[in-house]
Design a protein around this nucleic acid. Structure first.
Length: 289
DNA sequence: CACTTGACCTGTCCGC
DNA sequence: TGCGGACAGGTCAAGT
């Protein structure tokens, strides 16, 4: 679920809440969610102070003063929720916050800090993971070496997008956008939304895109991602921010999960089709092959 | 290499 | 109400 805007929203929250806190204990109940040896955990995580929370693509990086980092990928259903020691909100809390209701049955890892506050890593489908790595080694893990440019960096121009697409001429534009080596952080929601914004059919083969279409797509990607961050991301089912709150972008979405409803631009009925093996939402009038 | 498909998991929804 | 199958926002490995 979490794509760039959701992970960025979580990062902002965690970076406000975590730095300065010292890890006192770590508990987990599913090894694949936190595949680490006890020795490293005791030596480089327990007792370490959190320095900063960063993001690259859909990956969160929690830097510790032990020269180690927690690297987190939320995959489809991961959550990172912080609760202060006396958190007891739950029902009635704004935005149906999860705070006060944790741990629950999706909780895989619990980080407890010296002040009694906790960070919960929840993940219903168990695809996500947290790893403890030396900070210096993070850039050399496979994902970091291969991942493409950050679409919200000022250096991401339409020419960069065109360049990134050059090695993927024979696939659909949707498959290319979902490919993290082409561009960082795009997933199913923002692929559909930005292609609608650019009036490009998701099944369009990359080599058939004109320069004008690539320019429109670049502009649409940036607009959609910025808007979603402003709205706290998209909550379809699982996503919540670092304080357990849902995001509201889907209220502003044009096509995603809107099959059967009118296109906001031309009022034709939005369809759900399958492209690149994924559920895909289009306006059949605005987005033609 | 580029590209597609199945696997990793749990939960929900839909048709019979 | 129960059961099987399809499907869900992401990435890999393994196949063509």
């Amino acid at each position: 679920m979490p794509e760039l805007p959701e992970v960025e929203t979580i990062r902002t929250g965690l970076n406000r809440l975590l730095p300065g806190r010292i890890v006192a204990a770590v508990d987990f109940n599913w090894l694949k969610s936190f595949p680490n040896d006890k020795h490293s955990v005791q030596r480089f995580l327990v007792g370490a102070k959190i320095v900063e929370v960063k993001r690259r693509a859909k990956v969160l990086l929690v830097d510790l003063d032990s020269q180690y980092s927690l690297v987190v990928h939320l995959k489809m259903t991961g959550q990172l929720v912080f609760c202060s020691k006396d958190a007891r909100f739950g029902a009635g809390h704004p935005n149906d916050s999860l705070i006060g209701k944790l741990p629950d049955r999706s909780t895989r890892v619990i980080f407890t800090f010296e002040d009694g506050s906790k960070l919960f890593f929840n993940d219903q489908r168990k695809f996500g993971w947290v790893r403890l790595l030396p900070t210096a080694e993070v850039p050399s893990i496979d994902f970091m070496k291969k991942v493409g440019p950050e679409p919200l960096d000022s250096s991401f121009t339409w020419q960069v997008l065109r360049e990134q697409l050059k090695r993927h001429q024979n696939t659909s534009i949707k498959a290319a956008l979902l490919n993290q080596t082409v561009l960082a952080g795009i997933g199913n929601i923002y692929a559909d939304e930005s292609l609608w914004g650019a009036k490009i059919h998701p099944a369009m083969v990359v080599k058939n895109l004109s320069a004008a279409q690539i320019k429109r797509l670049h502009s649409s990607l940036v607009t959609v991602l910025r808007l979603s961050i402003k709205k706290g991301g998209s909550t379809d089912k699982n996503y919540v921010d670092a304080e357990g709150r849902k995001g509201s972008y889907l209220k502003f979405a044009s096509v995603f999960r809107r099959e059967g409803q009118p296109c906001p631009r031309c009022a034709n009925i939005i369809q759900k089709i399958r492209v690149a093996g994924r559920g895909t939402h289009i306006c059949p009038h605005c987005q033609k092959l």
